[in-house]
């Protein structure tokens, strides 16, 4: 009995193997044909399926964060950054689930951000947001933390003009994408305020912030959130070891400030 069974399996295995060989050979041939002959360029899908563009589709508060390393959370031991603490605080206050989308990139300048918001996925997320938070400009002014040494006023003014133009465009585009969401632009602090030429650097940062706030005021529902005062007195306690980015405590300060603004707006909406 047993040899018969064996013969039977032998036939089956062989037949299956032969069929499989042919199948794989066919697949191989298809690969060659597909990869080595020029294919007509496929057309970009005409219209993309705009799924889930409606806001609040799940009843959650959606925070959309964009900008540079501050929004990313560089220097925070937990890697959350102020956006992370902000959503923690809001979750506690509103007892609502929070969706946080962080698209910030370390070292982003205003020019880079302007380019980034041309991407369709970023735009889609901006459309869905209930709250937009951003930081930008630090890299324009400080050039990745290395500059502000020469304190060449002409150069700084030149940079400021470019920056203001970009920020204006960013505001405009965000407003076009999303008319309702309040935009919180978190301002700059002076990380060098305990150094010798603090007076000059502070005045540069103050001026920079003032101009940004003025630009923000041109738009509806764009809130400029100052952080200069938070870091003014005890800057060394709130800075990370790179003496430039905030540490966990510093980020918590920023988060608390933004959080207090957001709850206020929400309550006003509801009343």
């Amino acid at each position: 009995m047993k040899p018969v069974l064996k013969k039977y399996t032998l036939t089956i295995v062989s037949a299956v193997s032969i069929a499989a060989s042919l199948l794989w050979l066919f697949g191989l041939g298809w690969t060659l044909q597909d990869q080595f002959t020029a294919n007509e360029k496929f057309e970009q899908p005409k219209e993309k399926t705009e799924s889930a563009t409606s806001k609040n589709e799940d009843g959650k508060l959606t925070i959309f964060a964009l900008g540079d390393s501050l929004t990313r959370g560089t220097g925070d031991a937990d890697g959350k950054g102020y956006t992370g603490y902000l959503s923690d605080l809001l979750k506690k206050k509103s007892e609502q689930d929070i969706n946080l989308f962080n698209t910030a990139i370390k070292g982003e300048t205003s020019r880079g951000l302007l380019k980034q918001i041309q991407q369709s996925e970023i735009q889609r997320q901006a459309k869905q947001a209930d709250v937009i938070v951003m930081t930008i400009g630090g890299n324009d002014l400080f050039q990745q933390g290395a500059a502000l040494e020469s304190l060449d006023m002409n150069a700084i003014n030149g940079k400021k003009q470019i920056y203001l133009r970009n920020v204006n465009n960013i505001y405009k585009q965000l407003r076009e994408l999303n008319q309702d969401a309040v935009i919180y632009h978190v301002g700059l602090y002076n990380p060098f305020s305990n150094l010798s030429d603090a007076k000059t650097t502070s005045s540069v940062v103050r001026d920079w912030n003032f101009q940004t706030a003025a630009a923000a005021a041109e738009f509806e529902n764009i809130v400029y959130v100052p952080t200069f005062d938070l870091f003014q007195l005890q800057v060394e306690n709130y800075l990370y070891s790179d003496q430039f980015h905030p540490n966990t405590e510093g980020y918590k300060l920023i988060a608390e400030r933004v959080a207090s603004l957001i709850t206020f707006e929400q309550e006003e909406d509801e009343s």
């Binding site: 199948l23 794989w24 050979l25 066919f26 697949g27 191989l28 298809w30 690969t31 597909d34």
Partner: peptide, 16 residues
Amino acid sequence: VPQWQYILMEFGLVWY
């Protein structure tokens, strides 16, 4: 390419 063709192509390569 649809995924089934993609998979068939990859299996062809694997076999090779």
